[in-house]
Design a protein around this nucleic acid. Structure first.
Length: 421
RNA sequence: GGGGGAGUUCCCGAGUGGUCAAAGGGAACGGACUGUAAAUCCGUUGGUGUUUACCUUCAGAGGUUCGAAUCCUCUCUCCCCCA
């Protein structure tokens, strides 16, 4: 009888374990994870899964989704997701990977970012199974005495084990004391919420490990840490992040999202497949093989990826819709007036813009926001970057009447359209 | 506390009396090309409807000079070294 029960428990541990470590880069430690699962399953007590969020930028992007999706999987397994918004820690700034001191964000900015983030994150997580907390809740009221209590449990030498700190230290690049506090504050979050497991990107390994140490110092069972590969950004080199401008936000316009995915290099395309798409591993392998054997056009495979991801975040069939817009907007020599008409921004012509019924082209370009000065507008025209209903306008002195404009489409460059109404 | 260095156009950075609206790179924008908003190549990148001109710009305020990003004085900001 007991044997049968044990068997069931072991099976369940195995099942959860496999789901949990899927896509993970590192688990510290696997044995501890199994023990925690055993306890959770046999005592029917859900585990507390911590994920800390930095609020330097508001938007949830595809890079975040790797770990957010994992948190969702934990929720589906019946565990408790604790999302810690680092509204206080962000005032300090995570030094991870930084080679210089970060600029400090104002409290207002952080508040705004938190608001946006909260709205977006529930596109992925189940709001009913998520505990959302701000770490200012416990960090703000601290007294110096409390800070001393925490800092006395850690040493400079241990902090200097970190690459980013030791690099800066050796090269005489400033490290503020504030930054040193960051990993400690972050680690203390784990103590406060009594985390069983903490998730994060591989760049967070040190911070997460500090959480383990800190919990031990406070006589808690140390959390298991699970790190995940960082998704490379659209530049194909750096990790995806807002500050590097190489990110794809999950709430971006579908065609922009589609286009951004199409812009990633072929080398990183399969990282995207593996980390953030809905394709099965066997399907991905097949696609990968086909591409490397030259059987298929990599562009077509990337389109599959783009459609899939857009569908996940923008709703059913949005991928196909996005692709249609993409084709018109970004394919060369493809002027589908009907579709452009649909996607171009309307601009209302006002009579007061016209003098004697005419407007100077250069002036018009300023009015619609295509240029910020006459010089800039003139350059655009001279460089043949301006088209009216697909005809190049190259005369800088051109004057246009209101009837010559109404209903027509003004285009700047390859993919900016305005429809005059 | 003492000594030294730096602040240049969106960013990095060259420029130490006129030839400077200021090299070069990055970024951005336009064009060509491409399966791709990748790569590559070419062009543009303070402003002004009279564009071989004029105006504004080289941390800030004054000054020297026919003439200053460049020299002098003070102020502000940042960094480094020694203690």
């Amino acid at each position: 009888m007991d044997r049968k029960k044990d068997n069931l428990i072991n099976k369940e541990i195995e099942r959860q374990f496999n789901i949990i470590i899927d896509k993970a880069k590192d688990v510290v430690t696997q044995d501890e994870l199994k023990q925690k699962l055993f306890k959770s399953i046999s005592e029917n007590k859900p585990l507390k899964i911590k994920l800390g969020i930095d609020l330097t930028a508001p938007d949830v992007h595809l890079g975040h989704t790797v770990v957010l999706n994992k948190l969702k999987e934990f929720q589906d397994l019946g565990h408790i997701a604790i999302l810690i918004l680092g509204d206080y820690t962000t005032r300090v700034g995570d030094p991870s990977g930084r080679t210089k001191v970060r600029p400090i964000l104002s409290i207002e900015e952080i508040k705004k970012n938190a608001e946006t983030f909260r709205n977006q994150v529930f596109r992925i997580l189940d709001p009913d199974k998520t505990e959302l907390v701000n770490n200012s809740e416990w960090l703000e009221p601290m007294k110096l005495e409390d800070v001393i209590n925490i800092t006395s449990r850690y040493t400079l030498a241990r902090l200097l084990e970190r690459n980013d700190f030791s690099y800066r230290f050796k090269n005489n690049i400033p490290i503020s004391i504030m930054e040193i506090l960051y990993p400690l504050m972050q680690a203390y979050d784990s103590v406060v919420i009594k985390a069983d497991i903490e998730l994060g990107g591989t760049d967070q390994t040190f911070n997460l490990l500090t959480g383990r140490d800190m919990q031990r110092e406070f006589n808690q069972e140390p959390q298991v840490i699970i790190t995940f590969p960082l998704l490379v950004g659209t530049d194909g080199i750096e990790k995806m992040s807002k500050s590097l401008g190489n990110y794809i936000g999950i709430t971006e316009e579908k065609d922009i999202m589609f286009a951004k995915i199409m812009s990633i290099s072929d080398d990183v395309m399969f990282d995207y497949f593996k980390l953030i798409s809905n394709f099965t591993y066997s399907k991905i392998e097949e696609l990968e093989r086909n591409v490397s054997e030259g059987k298929v056009n990599p562009g077509d495979v990337k389109r599959k990826l783009a459609r899939n991801i857009v569908n996940i975040y923008q709703g059913k069939n949005s991928g196909e819709e996005a692709e249609r817009i993409f084709n018109t907007k970004f394919k060369i020599g493809f002027f589908d007036k009907e579709l452009i008409n649909e996607i171009s921004r309307p601009f209302k012509l006002k009579p007061e813009m016209f003098k004697n019924g005419k407007i100077w082209l250069i002036k018009l370009l300023n009015e619609v926001g295509y240029a910020r000065s006459n010089s800039e507008a003139r350059r655009l025209v001279e460089q043949k970057g301006i088209k009216l209903d697909n005809d190049i306008l190259s005369n800088v002195d051109l004057e246009l009447g209101i009837d010559e404009l109404r209903g027509k489409i003004l285009q700047r460059g390859k993919r900016e359209y305005i429809k005059f109404v």
